[in-house]
Design a protein around this nucleic acid. Structure first.
Length: 861
RNA sequence: GCCCCCGUGGUGGAAUGGUAGACACCGGAGACUUAAAAUCUCCUGACCUUUUGGUCGUGCCGGUUCGAGUCCGGCCGGGGGCACCA
């Protein structure tokens, strides 16, 4: 035995390979992006992270998907922009400051440094030269400049809006800080309170934001549908009920309805507790005031309002029905009517609206049907009758149009009739509300305006930007530290120079994330964007992020792009900033739990404490059986968070990257399993071994060469198609199949080398380090990332014969192999001659034979 | 409550309306090894059947079609969003 054979054979060692190639890319400046008019540009962007300080496996999946696209586009000759930054303002930093006494700024920048350290080893093709955090004064100063331009253009205004008010902590709470209508710290019952706040006029753009959805061909249909429903365009009738003996200044109640065809079924009028009439009554009547105060308890979310028990207060006031003048309807203040939508007042038709039906039942109001499923009027109503508007129904109390007509037709007819008779007019309304951007918090972008006793609200001068957050603040008491800072609020009025006060509200963090994609095109510009860079790099060709952002972030960004165009910061072509959108699923992980024997409460165990035997899970130390909750969202408190840093240390970045892409379709959730990660690692080791063997192979050409090369071209076709269509899991399945074919092939060394180098190229977007290593091992020129993407030779995809399944009455009975150019008659004859078919026919004649060329034959008997 | 999505073997999943279960995990058998690990080969939806083969099968119920996991209607279950979490 020679000494050499005692030395263990070298093996796949990601800890050596990965830093080496990362250094090689850095040395070559591979990912630094600059304008280059000679190449087509490609801008790929993943939603930037909140710097929590810990990289999450979900981030790994998100950024690896973007990385696959970026690297693939680099290989197809594109000048790729793939930047990274930090969505760095927000509540967690303030909460941390309150909990630990630190400063939000220190907390945030430490987290950024920490997370960046964890991100680097993953080998993502990011251009770190363009990095910024939204809490950098250089960034938010430009955001303040945008705000001032929007203000000047009339895109921003002030009005009153309700917030969650914690009466004990004397502070405004976020929705997530309200639990069951109570403040999360104080436990006090939250009240809805009005404050004057800043708003973006997004509702002016409702129609356009809705219509432009049609042009977003590369957005998921579900996201467009959700946005369309959110914008909520509706056509209806707006008209007034005249008020009988109303308080002074109130002689009518203006209502909006999308179902004017049910007007003769009205049995009450409901107004929002925030309606001017309700406020007037509240001031005069202690009972009304008590009811309104009670209704204002609890949070402000639509969910809370909708789920709350439907309650009303009979004001004693009556209105006259516009058509049935004998009828008087009671006016209720009702807790389920929103002041923000329509006119803040409705009429209730209990027969055709379940909510109104419940309300009428509760307060003993009449239920008057206006249409029925048949002309038989004797049916008793136990629930509201709400057919599809496209369904024809019989109008027993119609006042316009035919007796039998669809709801849609009846609405149109009713609006026309009402307009002719001077009862209101048809109007189009949108559900979309203006975007309230004021936050009564420290850790956000200061709103650059000044309050002057003489001049009112005055915009800050641009040369004074950025209005920086003061560092010397404390978080020992609840509330906004800017409000109680001794000097920061004090300033001179930009208009008259008199002593004035700064606005202490900061901006919603959605503002920060509504234009960062534009800033990445010129992160150092002394204006929000640079015209040349924006023109070259915009739009984002591929945007990737979580489905949880389907509505708000994406809608706000679409609005911002329009507003930035109106103020000269983006070209017209960038009004829809994201050409293609992909929404990826979460990474989940099983939760392992046992019950505490004392109190029966769940105890959560780390995956490392658990071992699996016979399909069951047990605690390693105690041997106790553990309950497994599969596919749960990762949560620190449930001890089921997978730490990418540990995975990279154990298996390498390529394994982590390969696994998060391999098992599930990218738009769906993927469950992280230790077994899956190990399997991915084994496979990469196998690829490495196969390539190493091929590097030393010297066999001559064989008749297996062509089969291998045909397999290779099929792999090129399928992997390329998989990446193009975000079918990463399917692409990886093809790579497994191709690797199996390569491993079993008896082809000569030249063909195998070609196949293995192509395999390296096809794997490079997913496992770039291993791909570079194999490429170098097999004598590839330069870096694999610089090599042009392999091309399919169509001639290599053609097969001489094709296998067709034969069905009888839609069930597969046999299979035939025919020439690729076989005629229909030949195929029919061969299909009929099959034993199984003859048996089924039993001497009879088929009724019909369907031949789908290249696909299937179906014989109907 | 409202809007949107998803549901396929023991598991993750594949499948332009055209052979359901590709590819992988787990499990089983074998090869190699003194042994183990690693690696390699084969098997692996359920039920019936000696082989051959047959029947059932994509959450549930119904429909369209020569043909449905895929399209339509209704239900059940899970997830996302609901405007101050990011």
């Amino acid at each position: 035995m020679s000494l050499e054979s005692l030395i263990p054979m070298s093996s796949y060692a990601p800890s050596e390979i990965e830093p080496k190639w990362q250094a090689a890319w850095a040395d070559a400046g591979t990912f630094a992006s600059e304008r280059d008019e000679s190449k087509p540009k490609y801008y790929v962007l993943e939603m930037f992270p909140y710097p929590s300080g810990r990289l999450h496996i979900g981030h790994v999946r998100n950024y690896t998907m973007g990385d696959v696209v970026a690297r693939y586009k680099m290989s197809t000759g594109h000048n790729v922009l793939h930047p990274m930054g930090w969505d760095a303002f927000g509540m967690p930093a303030e909460n941390a400051a309150m909990a630990t006494g630190g400063h939000p700024s220190d907390y945030t920048y430490n987290n950024i440094a920490e997370m960046k350290t964890q991100m680097k080893p993953l080998g993502w093709s990011l251009d770190w030269n363009r990095e910024f955090a939204t809490c950098d004064p250089a960034y938010y100063g430009q955001q303040q400049a945008l705000f001032l331009d929007f203000l000047e253009k009339g895109l921003v205004y002030r009005k009153n809006a309700v917030v969650n008010w914690d009466p004990v902590d004397m502070t405004v709470l976020a929705n997530e800080q309200v639990e069951d209508g109570k403040g999360w710290r104080s436990g006090a019952e939250v009240e809805r309170r009005e404050l004057t706040q800043w708003f973006f006029k997004i509702s002016d753009h409702s129609e356009e934001l809705l219509e432009a959805l049609d042009g977003l061909d590369n957005w998921p249909a579900k996201v467009k549908l959700m946005q369309a429903n959110w914008i909520g365009k509706s056509r209806g009738l707006q008209f007034s009920f005249s008020l009988i003996d109303g308080p002074s200044g109130h002689d009518r109640v203006e209502v909006y309805t999308t179902r004017p065809d049910t007007l003769l079924g009205a049995s009450f009028v409901g107004i929002s507790p925030d309606h001017p009439l309700a406020k007037q009554l509240e001031a005069d009547n202690p009972d009304v005031a008590a009811f309104c105060a009670d209704v204002r308890k609890g949070g402000t979310t639509e969910e809370a309002l909708e789920k709350a028990e439907k309650r009303g207060f009979d004001t004693g006031l009556r209105v006259r029905h516009p058509f049935d003048t004998a009828a008087e309807l009671p006016v209720y203040i009702a807790n389920f009517i929103l002041m923000d939508y329509g006119t803040g007042a409705i009429f209730g038709c209990p027969a055709h609206d379940q909510r109104d039906f419940d309300f009428a039942t509760k307060y003993d109001l009449p239920i008057i049907p206006t249409f029925l499923p048949s002309e038989d009027a004797s049916t008793e109503f136990t629930a509201a009758y709400v057919p599809m508007k496209s369904e024809k129904v019989y109008y027993c109390k119609g006042f316009a149009g035919d007796d039998w007509q669809t709801g849609d037709a009846a609405v149109d007819a009713a609006i026309a009739f009402c307009e002719e008779n001077g009862v209101g007019h048809g109007v189009t309304k949108f559900r979309l509300r203006d975007w309230g951007l004021s936050r009564q918090r420290y850790w956000g972008c200061p709103i650059p305006v000044v309050h002057c006793d003489a001049c009112g609200v005055v915009p800050e001068k641009k040369e004074n930007l950025p209005i920086e957050l003061p560092y010397d603040v404390s978080f020992d008491v609840p509330g906004n530290p800017l409000d109680r800072h001794p000097t920061w609020r004090d300033c001179a009025c930009p208009s008259c120079g008199a002593a004035a006060r700064r606005e202490t509200d900061t901006m919603d963090t959605f503002v920060d994330s509504s234009w960062y994609f534009a800033r990445f095109t010129a992160p150092g510009a002394t204006t929000p964007t640079s015209a040349e860079d924006a023109a070259y790099w915009m739009n984002v060709d591929q945007y990737i992020g979580g489905i949880e952002h389907a509505i708000l972030h994406l809608l706000y960004s679409r609005f911002f792009a329009r507003a930035m165009h109106m103020t000269g910061h983006l070209p017209e072509t960038a009004k829809e900033p994201f050409d293609a959108l992909f929404t990826q699923g979460m990474v989940t992980h099983a939760i392992y739990t046992t019950k505490n024997p004392q109190d029966g409460r769940p105890v959560y165990h780390y995956p490392e404490e658990v071992e699996l035997r016979d399909g069951k899970a047990f605690l390693k130390e105690a041997g106790t059986e553990v309950t497994v909750i599969p596919s749960a969202k990762m949560s620190k408190s449930k001890n089921n968070v997978v730490d990418p840093t540990r995975i990279v240390a154990e298996f390498g970045a390529d394994t982590a990257r390969w696994f998060v892409l391999s098992d599930s379709p990218p738009e769906r959730d993927v469950e992280w399993t230790a077994a899956g990660a190990e399997a991915a690692h084994k496979h990469l080791g196998r690829v490495w071994r196969i390539a190493s063997d091929i590097a030393e192979d010297t066999s001559s050409a064989s008749d297996a060469d062509e089969a291998l090369l045909k397999e290779m071209h099929r792999a090129i076709r399928d992997v390329t198609g998989g990446i193009d269509s975000f079918g990463f899991n399917a692409a990886i399945a093809k790579l497994y199949a191709f690797t199996n074919a390569l491993s079993k092939s008896k082809a000569g060394s030249a063909a195998k080398r070609t196949a293995a180098m192509t395999l390296a190229q096809l794997m490079a977007p997913m496992t770039p380090h291993l791909a570079e290593e194999i490429w170098a091992l097999l004598g590839g020129q330069g870096l694999v990332i610089d090599a042009p993407w392999p091309q399919v030779d169509e001639a290599m995809l053609v097969d001489a014969t094709v296998t067709l399944p034969i069905q009888v009455n839609g069930k597969r009975k046999a299979e035939i192999v025919v020439g690729a150019d076989a005629s229909k008659d030949e195929i029919e004859a061969l299909a009929l001659s099959q034993d199984a078919v003859q048996r089924m026919l039993d001497g009879g004649v088929p009724k019909k034979i369907i031949v789908v060329p290249g696909r299937i034959v179906n014989i109907v008997i």
